[in-house]
Simulated assay, not measured.
Amino acid sequence: MNTLTGAWDWLTDPAHWSGDDGVWHRLAQHLVLTVVCLVISCLIALPVALVLGHLGKGPTVVALVLFAVPPLLTNAYVGMREVDRDVVRAARGMGMTGRQMLFGVEVPLALPMIMNGVRIAAVQLVATATIAALAGGGGLGRIITAGFNLASTPQVVAGAVLVAVFALIVEAVFEIAERLSPRWARGTR
């Protein structure tokens, strides 16, 4: 109960509602961020959804693709931002163009993080693709949904085990590929 009363006291303190760190200012920032991101998301997603809806195909694929985007985007961005800026400046000083720096310096140095995002996305997709069966898609999710329809707990569990094993295999493939890759691609010296 102390936490609730503490939160209430914080919220009812007028000092927390004004200024650059106040609730109203933070709320305005949050609103702007939300609106900007919503508009950009609508510009990207709605045309695709309208066309696919008109054609009557692909919503599961689109949903799964969108599900894979966050780990890919996040890891690639972080990998690129973590590239040593001194190395980039040296490449620029050697006369490299932006394209040469991107593909000859930054991407190779960011490759371990980029591939980590690909690995995470792949494993998440293996697990999440099972819900495609709910929308009439195929895959191992069909075993699970059929088990639910038949009230067969063993079949549901068997399907879940198959999905888990498949996810572990995908993880292992990425791990083996990382170990077999050149040292520079693993981010080790």
Rank of each mutant, 00 (worst) to 15 (best):
N2H: 05
L4G: 08
W8H: 00
D9Q: 13
W10D: 09
P14T: 11
H16S: 09
G19L: 09
D21G: 15
D21R: 14
R26M: 12
L27F: 12
A28L: 14
L31K: 05
V32N: 04
C42V: 08
I44Q: 09
A49F: 10
L50V: 04
L52V: 03
L55Y: 11
G58N: 09
P59K: 04
T60K: 00
V61I: 15
V61Q: 04
A63W: 08
L64F: 07
P70H: 08
L73E: 10
G79P: 10
D84C: 14
D86T: 11
V88F: 06
G93E: 10
G95Y: 12
G95T: 06
M96H: 00
M101N: 09
F103V: 12
E106P: 11
P112G: 11
I114M: 06
G117W: 04
V118A: 03
A122C: 07
V123G: 01
A127E: 05
A133N: 12
G139M: 06
G141Q: 03
T145I: 14
L150P: 01
S152C: 11
P154F: 07
P154D: 12
Q155P: 01
G159Y: 05
A167L: 02
A167E: 10
I169Q: 07
A172N: 01
I176L: 13
E178Q: 13
R179V: 10
R179T: 01
P182Q: 00
R183L: 15
A185N: 03
R186K: 15
T188W: 02
